[in-house]
């Protein structure tokens, strides 16, 4: 790692102020950022830790019935506290990384980083969640803008993610054998007004909605509704672990399995 200063504010306002410095960067759980720093792939002047901010911690339900998760809430806490309210989200959280990673890694960190193989972005997008920052609310459909790219501005902090709770939902992750990230992950969420399907791990553009499947499933929420549907391999990631064709194929398989598990 290059040298950097460390600051650990206790309020969002202090954090925002600290991040105003040149080349300052927020540090949440650090499970992605610290390995990146070890490779000297980033050179922040200062890391501003978000883990000491009490208002960014925890899981609760708001008046609209949405599940509100503080941006600095670790995966393990989400896994435990969302279990009864939003089981599919809890299950997703309980399979990110490993137990030690889940004790440090946070939802805000994951959503802010938007790794194309991360699990959370699929839940956020499929749930139609709202990403709340220190100065605005961003709809999931507007938030994700491609590989490691989001609507966040420099110095903007995810303070909370608000999930509408679907009637039924499931996440199916097919792991990349080395990293155990998603080679393909599909999150299916059925709401009263329709079904949303979000896919992670597969596309060169990061997480995306499979609208054709959504339409079919909104009409008939059963695995059979997906018969004959497929995703084009164009734009899918090709690497050591999967060709674009394989990933496209897995999307259909995992979507069917998610629907079967949810219904």
């Amino acid at each position: 790692m290059y040298a950097f200063d460390f600051e650990k504010p206790t309020t969002v306002a202090e954090a925002v102020a600290a991040l105003a410095d040149d080349e300052a960067q927020p540090l949440s759980g650090g499970q992605t950022l610290i390995p990146t720093l070890k490779q000297r792939l980033a050179m922040p002047s200062k890391l501003v830790s978000l883990t000491g901010i009490a208002e960014m911690q925890g899981v609760c339900t708001n008046d609209a019935g949405q599940l509100c998760i503080g941006g600095a809430t670790p995966h393990a806490v989400v896994a435990a506290e969302a279990a009864s309210k939003y089981p599919a989200l809890s299950a997703l959280a309980s399979n990110i990384g490993d137990p030690a990673v889940r004790n440090r890694g946070t939802i805000g960190g994951s959503v802010a980083n938007n790794d194309p193989a991360a699990c959370y972005p699929s839940a956020v997008l499929a749930s139609g969640a709202t990403v709340v920052t220190n100065n605005r609310e961003i709809a999931a459909d507007d938030y994700f803008q491609g590989l490691f790219s989001t609507a966040l501005e420099e110095g903007e902090i995810i303070t909370e993610v608000r999930f509408p709770v679907p009637q039924a939902a499931n996440y199916q992750k097919f792991v990349q054998p080395a990293s155990r990230f998603a080679l393909v992950g599909v999150f299916v969420a059925k709401f009263a007004d329709g079904v949303r399907v979000a896919v992670t791990g597969a596309s060169n553009d990061g997480v995306f909605r499979w609208t054709e499947a959504e339409k079919a499933l909104s009409a008939n929420f059963s695995p059979d509704a997906l018969n004959g549907l497929s995703v084009s391999a164009d734009g899918m990631i090709g690497d050591l672990h999967g060709t674009p064709e394989y990933r496209a194929h897995l999307i259909a398989v995992m979507t069917k399995r998610a629907v079967a598990a949810a219904s």
């Binding site: 097919f174 054998p177 080679l183 672990h241 999967g242 394989y246 194929h249």
Partner: peptide
């Protein structure tokens, strides 16, 4: 014999 190779 990774999943991709077997599937392919």
């Amino acid at each position: 014999l990774s999943p991709q190779r077997v599937w392919a």
